[in-house]
């Protein structure tokens, strides 16, 4: 028990710290690295809760693909963050005012919230069915109860893909493509030329 608690606090502290550093660090590449750190710690928290599938998928998808993609984009675009932050001071008071108003509103709403006596049971996590792995249980839910949303999400991703291609793809003239059949059909005579090289003079 004590080991679990200690692990939780270590993972949680590092996750929060990394989250703050994502926003606070000046170098965008460092931000992305801290983002990776935050993801890995959150994945650890998931595994601690017994949700091993979610934890691993977080590492595979977010750390493996998304964060690395971010890294590429940031390094390739060579963004000037000082330029982006130039208006910061000008808009800071307005932003702060809006934030304070929102915070006050949220406090008002949460002030009216009382936990029902049976709330402890209602909001408890659903028990894990016996003899089912995490992956199995998630898959069953996705493909049965939530099949409609699952398919709809698939359509959304398809539209996003079409959109990216429509808006950015340009077919250019004179692109050299690899034609494997041509490469295989090439004969020695077309590519190799045998010359006599006189000694000491070159061609």
């Amino acid at each position: 028990m004590i080991i679990e608690a200690v692990t939780f606090y270590i993972l949680a502290t590092v996750a929060v710290f990394a989250g703050v550093m994502v926003v606070a660090s000046r170098n965008p590449v460092h931000s992305v690295l801290f983002l990776v750190l935050a993801f890995i710690n959150v994945a650890g928290l998931f595994i601690l809760m017994g949700a091993e599938f979610l934890g691993l998928i977080l590492v595979v998808v977010y750390v493996g693909a998304v964060a690395v993609l971010f890294m590429f984009v940031i390094m390739m675009l060579n963004l000037d963050f000082r330029e982006l932050r130039r208006g910061f001071l000008k808009y800071a008071p307005l932003g702060a005012a809006v934030g304070i108003v929102l915070l006050a509103e949220i406090l008002i709403v949460l002030g009216g919230w009382s936990i029902a006596p049976e709330g402890g049971q209602r909001f408890a996590a659903a028990p894990i069915p016996d003899g089912l792995t995490n992956t199995d249980a998630l898959g069953r839910l996705l493909y049965t109860d939530y099949i409609y949303l699952f398919q709809a999400a698939g359509l959304i991703l398809l539209v996003a893909m079409i959109g990216a291609i429509v808006l950015t793809h340009r077919s250019r003239e004179g692109v050299r493509r690899q034609r494997i059949s041509d490469q295989l059909r090439v004969r020695k005579e077309e590519r190799v030329e045998v010359r006599k090289v006189p000694t000491g003079r070159g061609i």
Binding site: A152, L155, I156, V159, G163, L167
Partner: peptide
């Protein structure tokens, strides 16, 4: 709503 909007942005 998102399926519709995403197509509209494009």
């Amino acid at each position: 709503l998102e399926l519709q909007s995403l197509a509209l942005y494009v």
